[in-house]
Simulated assay, not measured.
Amino acid sequence: MDNNIEFNVNLGIKEIKEIIPHRYPFLLIDKVTYMEPGKKVVAYKNVTMNEYFFQGHFPQEPVMPGVLIVESLAQAGAVAILSQENFKGKIAYFGGINKAKFRKKVVPGDILRLEVEMIKIKGPAGIAKGIAYVDDKKACEAEVMFMIGDASV
């Protein structure tokens, strides 16, 4: 595959669920609009007041937990890496989080644009850099380390 090819895609929930194992209430991406399998992805999360975590974080001022923003980035990255032919049907597990910075509150009504790019992949392990934007402003950035494993039946 030519690594310079750009892929404008329109993956919805159904297609995302065919790639990653996450399900409600923990599926934290809604669509994918750009993907280079194994390299880069652009995905979106529509943040609504109906999210389960807003019941307790925080009832008086709903804010999306930072760890769930990082999880959204990781799920977007998992779509890219698990779309690569040699990793189809596998699971991407968290191996670590580095350089996480939170720059803006994410609240109901926001649309998170999740941009994730693979920095390094060696065998079944890798590192990706993700940036979450709201209205073209950085809300969060982090490096995520992952390991690819087999899905147990």
Rank of each mutant, 00 (worst) to 15 (best):
M1N: 12
D2F: 01
I5F: 09
I5D: 14
V9W: 05
V9N: 06
V9K: 06
N10P: 01
N10H: 13
L11I: 12
G12Q: 13
I13W: 00
I13M: 13
K14G: 06
K14I: 14
E15F: 02
K17N: 10
E18I: 05
I19W: 03
I20D: 09
H22V: 08
R23M: 09
Y24Q: 11
Y24I: 09
P25I: 13
P25G: 08
F26D: 14
F26H: 13
L27E: 12
I29C: 10
D30W: 05
K31I: 12
K31W: 07
V32N: 04
Y34Q: 10
M35I: 15
E36R: 15
G38F: 08
G38E: 14
K40S: 08
V42T: 14
A43K: 03
A43H: 07
K45G: 06
K45T: 10
K45Q: 09
M49N: 10
N50Q: 15
N50T: 12
E51C: 06
E51H: 07
F53Q: 02
F54M: 06
Q55F: 08
G56A: 04
H57D: 07
H57K: 10
P59R: 06
Q60E: 14
E61C: 10
G66E: 11
I69A: 04
I69M: 12
I69W: 03
I69L: 04
V70Y: 04
A76L: 05
A76F: 02
A78L: 00
I81Q: 03
Q84Y: 12
E85I: 10
N86F: 00
N86D: 11
F87W: 09
K88V: 10
K90R: 11
Y93K: 02
F94I: 05
F94G: 08
G95S: 12
I97G: 01
A100D: 01
F102P: 05
K105Y: 09
P108Y: 01
D110E: 01
L112H: 04
L112R: 03
L112N: 03
E115Q: 08
V116R: 00
I119E: 10
K120V: 08
K122S: 15
P124W: 00
A125I: 15
A128D: 09
A128F: 01
G130I: 01
Y133T: 05
K137T: 11
K138V: 14
A139P: 01
E141T: 03
E143A: 00
V144L: 08
I148R: 08
G149I: 04
A151M: 11
S152R: 14
